[in-house]
Amino acid sequence: MSTNILTKRIEAARAKGRLALIPFLPAGYPDKKRFWDEIDALDASGADIIEIGMPFSDPVADGPVVEHASLKCLDAGVNLKWILGELAARKGRYQAGLVLMGYLNPVLQYGLEAFARDAVSAGVHGVILADVPFEESDRVHAAFDPHGLVLIPLVGLNTTPARMALYGADAKGFVYFVSVLGTTGVRASFDTTGLPAHLKQGLETAKAAFPVPVALGFGLKHPDQLKELAGLVDAAVFGSALIRHIDAGGDSKGFMQIWK
């Protein structure tokens, strides 16, 4: 079987001796028009994979920054139909791999099967569903797998090697490792003083358990952190940091320059 495009993008970055960069932005943020300009800018500025948030009214895995941004997008009328429609109109335009991230219920109401079909035909390569653990993933795999849409697993510091093995058995694309026991953007897992031993150990366990690259997310705030991660992970995800940067008047191009 051919290597998933998300894996390829991360491996291409590794071949160049750097971590793959995965910025995240909620669909329709900061507004419905500018959002697509920011996605273009992320793609042009070297994002290896772009994660687009699918807003949900009750995002339990997210901290206040992402929640607030998501609710704002919902108020502006962002929904899956809009996201997939706009992506379909831009198909082939992006060099970066495309991942949608969100919660199960909007996808369930869209229809798992219809969503898989429409996402793939809009150029989406993978999906992260924050409230679908291994135990509930059967129905999602049954709908996604025939279309080649990858369900990206999400694990963390309290995921045992046995549970990582459950996810690892048929993981494709990459695995998302959450660096803190907490929600998005709430607190930094580590600072420039160095990587805590338990995080290092968790990442080593994940590297051994998964046949796909490991991306670290949650709590990245400073470029120096990337140096600490060299050799331990293959990619870094930026979520609330990018939202904060845009809220402070910056843009995606400027943001990517900080991290490249």
């Binding site: 339990v60 409230d131 653990p133 135990e135 697993p153 999400l154 694990v155 995921t159 959450v178």
Partner: peptide, 18 residues
């Protein structure tokens, strides 16, 4: 496990499974 008919389940982030 954890279902009543078709309802129930454990739809939580992996971090809450332990």
């Amino acid at each position: 496990k954890g279902y009543f008919g078709e309802f129930g389940g454990q739809f939580v982030p992996e971090l809450l499974m332990p």
